[in-house]
Amino acid sequence: MAGTLQVSVISPEQVLFEGPASAVTAPGFDGEMGILPMHAPLMTLLGNGTLRIESTGGMKQFRVSGGFLQVVDDTVRVVTEEASAVA
């Protein structure tokens, strides 16, 4: 598996997470979706649920509701109005 993903989780008030990750599991509008490196460019809406990021520093989880996710060139951007870290 080549490369890693650059992931950022952005809410209106702050950038919640920014860093490399090997995989992202996001709550899509119609079900969970997994994103690995070399993903095709994608833009999708998110539903409600838990966003999981397999980062180098361990698994990070965020509760998100709504917003969207964009993948371009191994850069994943999660932009959501409501996001909070789950311990």
Partner: peptide, 10 residues
């Protein structure tokens, strides 16, 4: 881009 659902809904 792959758009899901479509551009209008997004």
């Amino acid at each position: 881009f792959l758009l899901a659902p479509d551009a209008e809904t997004i």
